[in-house]
Structures are given as structure tokens and as C-alpha cells.
Design a protein around this nucleic acid. Structure first.
Lengths: 107, 107
DNA sequence: ATTTAATATCGTAATATTGCAATATTAAAA
DNA sequence: TTTTAATATTGCAATATTACGATATTAAAT
């Protein structure tokens, strides 16, 4: 199929999975790491830095924006992409909650 | 394409993305939560509990095993699936390291 | 006003993922 | 040894994702 049966899961489960899914691509991991390594907000240095076409980078940025991890502001004719620190912590804490509450008692 | 250009990323980035990716499906989140909610190791109650076909559940279990999150032991004619607690903590700590080292200084 | 540079969007091809029915496989039970 | 129950695997259809070239779009620079 390719389609996911989201109806049979809770909203929390779907949200959590969505966070994981967005982070589940090396380009998006690399984009976040690169942005965080710069003192200033970096835009399409990403195209040079990471070896993917501009259209592809733009697509990945869009997905990162979709869960609120990145914000993009127009800066002249460029874009200034930044990590949304609040959202970042929020998601980190949700993932940790998942890890901490999901513990096996068996075996 | 559908194919991911793993060659252009570091092994760490690929590994990290792979962990995220495996957790990036609500069925797999639900499976982990259900296993952890039981005192004993549960096998194909999962098929009843989660509303997916047996073949589909089996496939998801396989992916969770692929990153070492689950171990499966034969128990008579059933399987006993358990969370690998060591691996669990290891992955949690890697994800946290990613979150903690990736911080924005801009905006 | 034109050009230029940066980014987004569209269309498309290739591949991956999800899900299931049907069919193995395996081990206990009869 | 045949049956039964639990799980894995295979094959397939439908949809999603990844990647890119081509084409908008937008704002500064000329």
C-alpha cells in the first residue's frame, strides 16, 4: 500500500511517529546539524554543504518546518532558516517521555 | 527516486536517521508501548490489540529487531518478543546527544 | 525596467513503504 | 503421524518518498 492506517492509532502515537519520521532522513539530520554549527542562520549554503540539488534541499526544509522545528524568515533575497529552540526542546522532551515510559519488565 | 543518497552522509548521520526512521511509524510506536505495558512478553496478541494483519505486524516486528530494539525468543510454538533494555537506553542516549549538541545560536 | 540571485514549486522517474492474502514453516498436541 | 496454532515469508497492489530538472517567484542590484 504505502498508506499508513493512522485512524487505528491515537493522536499521540501518530504525532510521535511523525516527529520520528521527519527526523528519519540523514539529509534532515545533516541540515539541522549544519544550521546549528553556524553562528549565523544559514540558507542555501546547505546546497553546497550537503551534496543535494536545491529543489531537494528545499523539500527537506519544508518537512522540517512542517513539525515546527525550523522557522524561515525572508532576509533580502535569501532565506534565514533557524532552529526553533522552544519547539526543539518540546519535541526532545516528548521523545524522552516515550523512552522513559516505555520500559520492558519481561525477560 | 525513493532512494536515499546515504553515501554523502556520515555513518553517524545515517545510523541516527535509521533509528528515527524505524520509530517513525505509529504501529511500531504502539507495538513498543504494548509490549512494555505487559508484565509478560507478548507475541501475537499484538494482532488483536493493534488492528493490523498478522503479516503486517510481523513485518513491523522485523524492523524493530533490525535496530536491536526487540529480541525474539521462541517459546513453544509462539514467539516471545521483548524490549532490549540495554539497546533501548543506548539509542535514547544517542538521540539525546543529537538533541543536546544541535542547538541554534541564531535569531 | 532589466538583470541577477535565491528560493519555492511543479512535474516526473525511480525506488521504498505499507498492508494484505496466500503460502511456507515450525513445534506442540492429539 | 496428522492436525493444529503461531509466526515468517512471499508476492503483489497501492501509495509515499526521494531526487532532480525545469520553471515560477521574489527582491535586490544594475
Amino acid at each position: 500500500m504505502g498508506i499508513t492506517k493512522t485512524q487505528i492509532f491515537t493522536e499521540k502515537q501518530n504525532d510521535l511517529a511523525q516527529f520520528f519520521k521527519v527526523l528519519g532522513h540523514p539529509a534532515r539530520v545533516a541540515i539541522l546539524q549544519y544550521i546549528s554549527s553556524q553562528n549565523a542562520c544559514i540558507c542555501n549554503d546547505l546546497v553546497d554543504e550537503i551534496g543535494l540539488a536545491q529543489a531537494t534541499i528545499s523539500q527537506h526544509l519544508k518537512e522540517l518546518k512542517s513539525i515546527g522545528l525550523l522557522t524561515g524568515e525572508v532576509e533580502g533575497k535569501s532565506m534565514c532558516y533557524c532552529i526553533n529552540v522552544e519547539r526543539w526542546s518540546e519535541i526532545q522532551s516528548q521523545l524522552n517521555q516515550f523512552f522513559n515510559t516505555t520500559k520492558s519488565k519481561c525477560c
